[in-house]
Every structure is written in C-alpha cells, then in structure tokens.
C-alpha cells in the first residue's frame, strides 16, 4: 500500500478480463491493491512489492508487467487480463492443465504469474527451447519447485499447441 498526506481522486475506466470497470480511486493507489482489495481479484499475489519476484504479474495491453510497480491511474483506458480472466470459460487453459499434469505447483503462490508469463512466452516463441523458457521466466521467482517441472509444463503446453 502506498500513502499520500493529500489524497486526490480519479475517475478510472479500465477493461479487466473483458469487462469495463469504472471506479473512483485515490491517485496513489497501486494497481495490485486495486485488483486485490477493490475488485477482489486475489489471484495476483504480492510477495516482494518491488518488481523482483513476478507474483503480481498481469497482462497489460498484451504484455506481462508487475502490477506492484504500476499506479491504477496509469492504466486508464487500458486492457488488462489477470489470472482470473485467462480462460474464457470455467475450463482451465492448456497451460494451466499442463502445470497440473506435471505437478509443477507446490504452495502455488508464484503460479498465477508463472502461468501468465508462460502464456505470453508462447506468443513470442511458439516452439521455445529450454534456454528460451528460462530466459523468459527470469522475472518470476519460485521458492518451492526448483523450476524444472514448471519448465517441463511450459514446454509440453507448447508441444500440445503444435
């Protein structure tokens, strides 16, 4: 949470997971807090709050970003996808299924960020090498799995997409 002694408000309009959201917010509110506290979208996690770990990763206008390093006012007019909006239906995406199949999830805290990063990684490299996956995942820290199973899961999701 950030603070300012003289709060000002802003009329925010932003499309989140396909729905237009309109809210009055303080200008110093972080996007991560807006998602979690105001909208109840708690899939995006906070761990470091400083851009180091990737637990708060969301997709902003088509690119992965750390929502802890963005103010909500900055995304006025933007399009955001969070882990909650990844699958259009209640079904899991191939990527999410692949994480499950490979037992790539332990405590789960890093996983929303890993899955979103994995999805966007496949847009950039449809047939990624292991090294490409490691490079693209370097902004996402996992303290449980040791990464191998996460990399396996992303590689398999790529193979399944063909």
């Amino acid at each position: 949470m950030l603070h300012h002694p003289q709060p000002h408000t802003f009329q925010l309009e932003v499309t989140i997971n396909g729905e237009l959201v309109q809210r009055e917010i303080p200008t110093h509110l972080r996007l991560l807090d807006f998602l979690r506290e105001d909208l109840g979208l708690t899939g995006s996690k906070e761990v470091c709050g400083e851009g180091e770990c990737g637990a708060c990763t969301i997709i902003l206008n088509g690119q992965t970003v750390n929502s802890c390093l963005i103010l909500a006012v900055e995304v006025h007019g933007a399009f955001i996808v969070t882990i909650e909006g990844l699958a259009d239906t209640q079904e899991l995406t191939e990527m999410q299924k692949s994480f499950e199949d490979h037992h790539a999830v332990q405590c789960g805290y890093c996983i929303p960020g890993m899955v979103l990063t994995g999805e966007k990684l496949l847009d950039r490299h449809p047939h990624p090498t292991r090294d490409e996956i490691k490079y693209e995942l370097s902004g996402n820290i996992c303290r449980c799995t040791g990464y191998h199973k996460i990399i396996d899961a992303i590689q398999r999701a790529a193979d399944d997409r063909g």
């Binding site: 990737g54 990763t57 690119q63 992965t64 970003v65 750390n66 390093l69 693209e136 995942l137 902004g139």
Partner: peptide
C-alpha cells in the same frame, strides 16, 4: 536487463 516484466515497462 532484468526480467520480461521490467523490460516491457
């Protein structure tokens, strides 16, 4: 430079 999320921003 950093990771993808920071490079994007």
């Amino acid at each position: 430079f950093a990771g993808a999320q920071i490079r994007h921003r």
